[in-house]
Write a protein that binds this DNA or RNA. Structure first.
Lengths: 332, 332
DNA sequence: GTGAAAGCGCTAACAT
DNA sequence: ATGTTAGCGCTTTCAC
């Protein structure tokens, strides 16, 4: 076994309390003593046992991260933002994939609480009462990242999705489009149904364009579903002249399907997407996209969580980060 | 505070040892007692404290994962493979980004050991003596994923990179190419210098093509560096007629640069890449690629780690997974 | 089948 | 400035 604090104390001829002080940078230690202890630590190759420390101090310097799918480009960028800030504040991350499955989510929350994490960053689709109950009975801080709680009970970091889509669609309308397709993510997710879809509708309304149900197609964020959506649009009597697609990967599918059918982007059909991941530059034409600051959402969420964990005062529990529309070649 | 095992014991009128038995599924408990305890647990909302358990049992059911960059498509697919198998075996993952920075790597290993992880999955570029020393003095199991240890001391899961590149280049040669570019990753990484590069050379040699240094360009796996490499090739007196590019993202950059310069893929220049992530289908023409079973490498590495952690016997510590060449439209 | 008790390695009062 | 001591919440012998 490796050395314990007790071994170090004996080796240095001091008490374990003193060793603890040295290890934790407590200033109340005479320099000579500190030196003796440091040497003993080095000699024995002592490394503090974080588990014992966690039990004694009730802090693990570990936070849980629940994410739908770490292999998604969008979420892995979020995760990187979380991780970087966590590292900056000396926390480690326990990463869990939920596949947006509610049972898994609840189970993961419980596992993480069992592991005594100091806080949780949660990313998911739908937050319902059961989630909120779990969060509340847990006496650790929770922050939602890129995830809305319609009841505004849980702190969160997002952009203004409604406004972002409103702007994207308005851009399209201003350049002359009247028939605009909308490829959304799953509509049971509030962000999609309540915010993005509403932004779409509001843009249409404010330009006196009537809402046409056949222009809305639900995708599942995959390349394939983007292709299928485009195929469906192209089979309509009057095809749309522009399409908003709610993820970069789907949008690439949409563009390719349009091109495969012999049409051109943006000349025949304009395409605008949503996440602004690195994928936007990896397609021809490059994708005009709502620039959602993915990395920053993760980073800010983690920063917010550190504030809660340190009982710092927080001005606002619901933070809305700015977005832009990043114009590239898939729109005129 | 939440209930402890002692609270449950009192509530159920038994000793904490019995509660512990029930919680851990020990069969030596009378059904009636078990029932009493289970009810008390439910009533109090008791949830075992994994930190205390970890201290007492010296097992945390947590493994460390050191990864260069979770936001990379390639590594996040690996991570998903690791996570899925970890979950299957009831382990959680502490995820750490290293940016392939040796100091960070060493530091992360130490942090993870301090947190008493039961094992570590390590992904990185270069493994040197210092890493090996750390691994050895740690008395936890380590498995390398998509990472080679030239000294073959540390268990690992990889594909046969040398052979894979040999096959890819041979394919190109067989279809008539004699001047073949090689866009590699950083050459200080042994996988690149010692395996992939050697596969390239061996393919050339076995077809009596002499090695030409100007056909090798070092990239950094980004889209931009793929573009730059292509630009450099296209500025040569005799441009290559085919290019092997060591990552999907770089390969897409290479294709775009070629196309932007008015040439066609594969008619003028064939392109073949290496990772076979989902990106291969997101570019036109779709990318012919070495099919590296990314997810599986992660999954198998984690599975191997569980075997070490359970002291199961392991037939081979160095596993080589099969690869294929996946032919798509970027080659003739 | 069940209980008592001794740790696991550390932190955090409280003394001195 | 340093030492003593009592936990933190659990597992794990060892008795009974």
């Amino acid at each position: 076994m490796s050395a314990t604090i007790y071994d170090v104390a004996r080796e240095a001829g001091v008490s374990m309390a003193t060793v603890s002080r040295v290890v934790n940078g407590n200033p109340n230690v005479k320099p000579t003593t500190r030196k003796k202890v440091s040497e003993a630590i080095k000699r024995l190759g002592y490394r503090p046992n974080a588990v014992a420390r966690g039990l004694a101090s009730k802090k693990t310097t570990t936070v849980g991260v629940i994410i739908p799918d770490i292999s998604s480009v969008y979420f892995s960028e979020l995760a990187r933002g979380i991780e970087d800030i966590a590292t900056m504040y000396k926390y480690n991350i326990i990463l869990c994939d939920s596949d947006q499955n509610k049972e898994k989510e609840i189970h993961l929350i419980q596992t993480l609480l069992g592991k005594q994490v100091d806080g949780i960053v949660f990313m998911g689709g739908k937050i319902d009462q059961e989630h909120i109950d779990e969060f509340k009975q847990a006496n650790v801080s929770i922050v939602l990242a890129a995830t809305v709680d319609e009841q505004h009970e849980i702190p969160s970091v997002n952009i203004d999705y409604e406004q972002a889509v409103f702007e994207a669609i308005s851009t399209l309308i201003k350049s002359g489009n009247r028939r605009i397709g909308f490829v959304s993510g799953p509509l049971e997710v509030p962000i999609n149904r309540k915010y993005k879809m509403e932004g779409y509708k509001r843009a249409l309304e404010s330009h006196d364009i009537s809402f046409d149900e056949s222009l809305v197609i639900q995708g599942d964020y995959t390349y394939e579903s983007g292709k299928e959506a485009a195929a469906q649009f192209l089979s309509q009597e009057i095809t749309p002249t522009a399409v908003f697609v709610d993820s970069d990967e789907m949008a690439i599918g949409t563009i390719h399907e349009i091109q495969d059918k012999g049409l051109r982007v943006p000349e025949d059909i304009e395409v605008i997407s949503s996440e602004n991941t690195r994928l936007v530059q990896m397609v021809r034409p490059t994708l005009t996209s709502i620039a959602e600051p993915t990395y920053d959402i993760g980073a800010v969420a983690m920063r917010l969580l550190t504030k809660f964990m340190n009982n710092e005062k927080v001005e606002s529990r619901t933070v809305i980060l700015p977005h832009r529309i990043e114009l590239r070649k898939s729109t005129k």
